[in-house]
Amino acid sequence: MPENKVEFELVSPEKLLVSKDTDMVVVPGEEGDFGVLPRHAPMISTVRPGVISIYEGKTVSEQIFVAGGVAEVTPTRCTVLAEQAQPISEIDPAVARQSLQDAKEDLADAKSDAERKSAERQIAVSTAMIRAIA
């Protein structure tokens, strides 16, 4: 592996989505975004719904939306486990708005705590998705 690069991996349960060497990655952590540069202190953080930005040099080369997950950072590596991920360019605004609408209806119809919780989670994801493309 080349020096001064971060090995970034984005993994979903269904497959390994991204695996590449990057100069910097910005991850939306639960308690605020954090940038990962080479020789970052090892840490584990939860990830909120938001956008992961991958930097080549000083510019953003790729932006990927994730619907929450976990990130593991070591001095040479940054691994993000996410259930759902999608490049920003592939998000359809109409679909995102529709899913927010559906989630709001689900919340209104929710009878049990579990249903309410999953609807709320869906609202948070859809809102973040809309904000990401705005």
């Binding site: 952590g29 840490m43 939860t46």
Partner: peptide, 8 residues
């Protein structure tokens, strides 16, 4: 040798 920081 890695001691992780946890957040939260």
């Amino acid at each position: 040798k890695l001691v992780y920081d946890y957040e939260p």
